[in-house]
Design a protein around this nucleic acid. Structure first.
Lengths: 120, 120
DNA sequence: GTTGATGGTTACTTTTTGGTAAGTAGGGCA
DNA sequence: TGCCCTACTTACCAAAAAGTAACCATCAAC
């Protein structure tokens, strides 16, 4: 098996929380356990496919846990694992920095909106 | 002009530091001003094209400044702007978390290496 | 006048990522 | 009987990101 080589720590981090959706999902799970449908409603732009795909990858990385309730209709809950919680501070800062960035760009005349500001 | 809409702060942040290269470049510039060639040597996997492309985008976002010395052969220096410095804490944490993540995966038997650990 | 150093661009191809739409399961319920 | 609910999968296609390789400019030194 070929050894995977990283040159700098941030590479590994971005492999886990990078991409268009993972950090968004994690920012929501940071606040509370959520069902699949709740996440989908919280992230209206995401498709079913992307949502489950990203959740599977986060689960594989031991960042998110998946709890299936054997019911009909199905019920599945996602939450940060203990290890996932170790990202909580970073996720919070990423949210806050982004909010500030949007404020600046607005002040600068850009046509840009932030719909929910839940990390203030 | 259509208004750009974000749903959560982290979206804006990831638009700026996301992608395969930006956070790596920024982690290097966090320590000191660097010339193009220095960056290229510090990130051996990156191509000329990607390096300049990513630097241009970071410059457009006002995260990185570009200082051209009108000499032959050319000399160009890149540095974090004051605003870019506001990412410094986050970048540091992203590096440290990644280093820890690699440690865990190694302890877990994965064939994986981290070449330089400059953020301890 | 050829070579080298440095930073950069361009055209082209490949890889990765994301989007759409349809289908599955299984019990509840009218 | 047939449709609903929820979570999830699959096949297929489109778009975005990244990789490759060749090229340019300038002046200095040999």
């Amino acid at each position: 098996m070929p050894t995977k080589t990283y040159h700098i720590g941030v590479e590994a981090t971005m492999e886990i929380i990078g991409g268009k959706w993972k950090s968004i999902i994690l920012c929501h799970l940071r606040h509370r356990t959520m069902r699949t449908g709740e996440l989908a409603r919280a992230i209206p732009q995401i498709s079913q496919k992307m949502l489950t795909q990203q959740l599977r990858e986060l689960e594989a990385a031991n960042i998110v846990s998946r709890h299936v309730f054997h019911q009909v209709p199905p019920k599945v809950e996602y939450a940060l694992t203990d290890y996932g919680e170790s990202l909580s501070g970073i996720l919070h800062e990423l949210c806050v920095w982004g909010e500030d960035n949007i404020d600046r760009r607005q002040a600068n005349g850009e046509a840009i909106t932030l719909l929910s500001r839940d990390d203030v």
